[in-house]
Amino acid sequence: MELQKIFRSSYASQLRDDVKQNIGIERWHGESFPFDESKLLVMSDVNHPDGLLEKMDARNDMESAIALYEAYPNLTPFIATYAPFWESLAHMDLFEYVRNRWPKAKESESKYVLDHWFLSSGVGRHALANLWWTVRMSLQEEESNPYELTRVYFNISAEIRTRRLLVSSLGRNRNSTIGILKFYRDYKELLFDNAGTYKLMYIMKYFNMLGGVKMLCYLPSSFFYNELEKIIDRIDIVKGRSDVQGRDDLFADLEI
């Protein structure tokens, strides 16, 4: 099998600088990206998958995420957060997908390109890294339907998934993510309503406060599920941002 090629880090960095300085920005508006073939490296331990682009669907994040994860199932944390890796995929192998998923590069500020083609704003904003990490944190390999919770994760609004939960300390803890997603699976009516965004903000704030005195990293996913069941009435009360930020009574027994 062919090995994956990526940009040299100096080339990726040069492209990033070009976008920041608006140099040659029209390169991101075309059908394909004119990259410099002499600036590529071959990765020794990552295979290049066949036919991935055809499986990526700009209208379906979840299916694209699963295809991407299955194409690169064994990335180490180092590679899975390595900017030149994701930036290379976004400019070479999957440029067409990224351009279709994020089609406003031409009429937007350069930050739009930096956010979705580069890792400048972290994995949560990157067109591909956010998909891969969403699967990674929700996958249950031992279950008959390993992507059951991935589906639940993608049902949460993209904004709150990519900008808040995925990139938070809580979201980087697999046990907490699994526990929270199982709760979402079982209490859909409670959580997927008009106040869903604020309910998740409340849940995150609740666990962040609890994490001030508890070793959350030590606790199993069932702890997070059970804890949420204990505060189900409070979650139901949350209807807006002011409930998350101004209602001390919703956090009263945390004793912090």
Binding site: P77, Y82, V123, Y218
Partner: peptide, 26 residues
């Protein structure tokens, strides 16, 4: 935080070793 690597070792011994693969962290 930079590589999303997070692990919790636990046990009873007061002398122990923790190993972190270099491919997991930055």
């Amino acid at each position: 935080p930079s590589s999303y690597f997070r692990q919790c070792w636990s046990g009873k011994d007061t002398s122990f070793s923790v190993t972190i693969p270099k491919k997991s962290v930055r």
